[in-house]
Design a protein around this nucleic acid. Structure first.
Lengths: 356, 356
DNA sequence: CTGAAAGCGCTAACAC
DNA sequence: GTGTTAGCGCTTTCAG
């Protein structure tokens, strides 16, 4: 058994053992501080003996930097977000920052989350919650805390954000459908006023319209399993049913496929082509083999963290909008066009003219 | 534009504006403190005006309580863990605790994680990382920090843990297979030395053995997609191939099903029955309709948090092993026995004799 | 390069 | 009930 008294060891105690001043101890553990190799060694030795670790809380108190980034997420059902979370945690860890997690479910807890975030004096915030009102980010910015919206943008341009190129990707999907000779198009949307949903829908419809197609069936799945099922039913019950469906994200697309196959006996892609967005894990599973616009999670996370760090270090929180391009990963849930589908780094992707 | 100087407002400033002492401010924000309604109001008013929020960092420093729980997770690919994370975050939030996330990927970063955890003086730790060595928990316990292992146990009994009843559930699965008349059994394991994997395998094999079945095909998927695919190939290439496969978790079971169907043209469950463990989201999708032992996530999380709180409040970290029972959710990936399958709260489950 | 000393913002005795 | 007074463990001037 170890000592019963669990009072953590302090720099003071280390100093005493090492026979130096407490500031010397502090300096040994402060990267850029000026300290002689000799004392440094003494301190390190004593620290090791005592099992000393600097108290991050105390440090935060007088540096006014917590080295904590608050991350607000909801929609854990969609594997996209856990993937982001993992990447974010790893990236931050690299920089010796830490991740305080907030779950933003109902609209009602914005105030509560804001309160918690403020109390912990987080150095920055990643807002990756689709549903949460933007008031939160405004309040944080007003308080001088850097915020970056992840996979979501703020139309007013007041908040920094990192997104994939939603509109362009959606246009590409329309082109893909068109090139494969589809005729009857549909769109299954997510939460109607979420920014990525709007951008994807806009790109898709616009590209279609440019080819003279105005008659696109639009339904809404609201990022919700039950509602998506209902929306899919509506789609396939119509006659003629659509033969090309772009679903706002993979998490819903998978449901649409299941309804098509198991409730309507449709073959995918022979009877109907389905394309999604995100390229989450299940999209790669054989049962789905979903053709999907991939989100470059790593790149997006890197951009997010860099943006945050820049703002934290400079104290300047000028908003900045970052868009990182993704690719259309071609699998088997949608009929393939004759041209444009190529292999690239072991993945099959679709290239439009401009890409070349 | 707001004021350019973002120095957060302190209790001192509030005190001044309210015309009271700084301690009065502190008291109004300390739940049980004795303060008169009158001063309380004055303080609250001043605080509102200034946008004051207590500095949690400073508070932590002298209460020696951070109100932060460190959560260590790896294996984000398996939706089970994100689900746990979400539940944990929500539950902790309820109690005004916060969740600092650590990603434990490689064995190598145990020391690093431990270091970070210690530096932030977290009040407790939830270890939900399958792969991470138990040294971490030992070190934390030695440092006097409550640790509870989640979905994982420590054979030595030195660490607290919360698990579903792995062995019992596995036995039940064996019974289910047996009752449905299966003959050729197989087991697809996860990381060989992970505690839940061991318990599930043990229960399954023991129950089978008690019925005189000793010939069970055992392969290993290591909780990894590629390896699981390989393991499934091995299983189905043999002749005769198994007709009843228990896979250590759903995340692998889904892969096994895909291989069976799309690589070997097998029908599930006509040709082969597959049962998994966890009852994650995708298991409910029509393409899989996986029969699976459900983990009672909410109950497990509640137990975890309660245990942690008890230990934190009492300062007593006697290890305690908690097991919470789950149910076998019956879908369509495994042939159903004649008896024992009943509907319960809208879910179809399997009941063994003892259950009744 | 090093030690002494002054806080960071708050809580918790302690007197009144 | 309220103000005064010590710190919590550390960083950071400031002399030397």
């Amino acid at each position: 058994m170890k000592r019963k008294t669990f009072t953590a060891v302090t720099s003071q105690q280390v100093a005493q053992l090492a026979g130096v001043s407490q500031s010397a101890v502090s300096r040994t553990f402060t990267p850029g501080a000026s300290i002689s190799p000799a004392t440094r060694e003494k301190v390190l030795k004593a620290a090791r003996e005592l099992g000393y670790r600097p108290n991050a809380i105390a440090r935060s108190l007088n540096t006014a930097r917590s080295r904590i980034i608050g991350v607000v997420i909801s929609y854990f059902d969609n594997p996209f977000y856990p993937q982001v979370l993992e990447a974010l945690a790893q990236k931050l860890d690299t920089l010796n920052y830490h991740l305080l997690l907030f779950v933003g479910d109902r609209e009602g807890n914005v105030d509560r989350i804001f309160d918690q975030i403020m109390q912990y004096r987080v150095d920055g915030i990643v807002l990756a919650s689709v549903t949460l009102s933007l008031d939160l980010s405004q309040e944080c910015l007003a308080a001088g805390i850097p915020v970056v919206l992840f996979n979501r943008s703020d139309e007013s341009g007041m908040t920094s954000s990192v997104n994939s190129n939603n509109e362009a990707a959606a246009r590409q999907i329309a082109e893909f459908f068109l090139a494969a000779g589809h005729q009857r198009f549909a769109w299954v949307g997510g939460v109607a006023d979420s920014s990525v949903n709007i951008a994807r829908q806009r790109g898709y419809l616009a590209a279609l319209q440019e080819q003279g197609i105005n008659d696109v069936r639009v339904v809404n799945g609201n990022y919700d399993a039950r509602e998506t099922t209902r929306a899919a039913y509506a789609l396939f019950s119509a006659s003629p049913a659509p033969d090309a469906i772009f679903v706002a994200n993979d998490h819903m697309a998978v449901i649409v496929m299941d309804v098509a196959r198991y409730e309507f006996g449709l073959r995918v892609p022979e009877d109907v082509s389905v394309i999604g967005y995100d390229d989450i894990g299940p999209s790669g599973w054989s049962s789905y083999a979903l053709t999907s616009a991939s989100q470059p999670v790593e790149a997006m996370v890197t951009a997010t963290v860099e943006l945050l760090m820049k703002q934290i270090d400079s104290g300047n929180i000028e908003p900045e909008q970052i868009t990182v391009p993704g690719t259309l990963v071609v699998r088997h849930s949608a009929r393939r066009p004759q041209a444009g589908v190529v292999e690239e780094n072991g993945k099959v992707v679709f290239q439009t003219q401009e890409d070349k």
